Simulated scan of single mutants.
Amino acid sequence: MNRVSSSFAAAFFALVLGACNSNPPAEQATAPRAAAQRPGAEAATPTGKKRLLFFGNSLTAGYGVEPEQAFPGLIGQKIDSLKLGYEVVNAGLSGETTAGGLSRVGWVLRQPVDVFVLELGGNDGLRGLPLTATRRNLQGIIDTVRRRSPNAQIVLAGMQIPPNLGVSYAADFKAIYQDLATKNNLVLIPFLLDGVGGDRSLNQADGIHPTPTGHRIVARTVWAVLQPLLR
């Protein structure tokens, strides 16, 4: 695993300061889009298609880019081009924490899923929330998926944070994902932003959210893990 670069740490520290605000404007701006993409709408899943659901925060929701430019949309285009027979659902919600995810995952899973990609925890770490709570909430989401869709493949997207809140905190945060993947026999993406985090040319002005080009790299990282599951 590559170390988080110093520029990545600086950018994330800026977000830590922003996260202290009770109503972050950037995250607030993308919530309507994410809500509109939640599953369980009136239209039924096309007959014969399996469901691949991305469940996460602003990275999944595609803050600052068009839906088709975000990595879930790019994965959907790849799946369609290969005629793999999956419907891709983007259930990303900007500003989401693991606690928020745990509270809404049951609603999202009103319809069964075949592959569930879990991308949460980054906002917890940036706000310095207790890691015991983050771990417990992620486990609760995993348990809910297993109850609602027992045969679903669960993919856990790992995240890292800079050491601004302490080296031990950052290391323990990173370890949560590997520990949960091992404990629950999950497929792990070691670091979702590998090759993108800390690169100014691949991130928007906030230094946090990927540009369309950055999302294409994230999509390749995710696809390398997903492809064997979709055959």
Rank of each mutant, 00 (worst) to 15 (best):
I189N: 00
G125M: 03
Q37G: 10
G73M: 08
I208N: 04
V113D: 07
N90Y: 08
Q204D: 09
L109K: 05
G195A: 04
V222Q: 04
N137D: 13
T132D: 15
A11D: 14
S103H: 09
D194Q: 13
L188C: 01
V222I: 13
L52A: 06
H215C: 02
I142W: 06
D172K: 15
L120A: 14
G195I: 07
A11W: 08
Q160R: 15
F191S: 04
G92K: 01
A152E: 14
G195T: 05
S149G: 11
I217K: 13
A9P: 00
S58Y: 06
K83C: 07
G166F: 06
I189P: 00
V225S: 12
L118Y: 01
K49I: 00
A35E: 14
A91E: 09
Q77R: 14
A44T: 10
P228L: 04
A205K: 14
L230W: 07
V115F: 08
K78M: 09
A219K: 04
G76I: 10
V155F: 00
A11R: 11
D80H: 02
T98F: 06
D124I: 04
N184L: 02
T47S: 04
G140D: 07
G76P: 12
A43K: 14
G56D: 07
G125S: 03
N151P: 02
G48A: 02
R104N: 02
L188T: 01
G166R: 04
E42N: 05
N57W: 00
R220M: 03
A29E: 12
L109Y: 08
S22L: 03
Q37N: 13
A14G: 15
G48C: 01
V145P: 05
A91I: 08
S201T: 15
P163R: 14
I208Y: 04
N2M: 05
G18M: 07
G125P: 01
A175R: 15
L15N: 11
R147D: 13
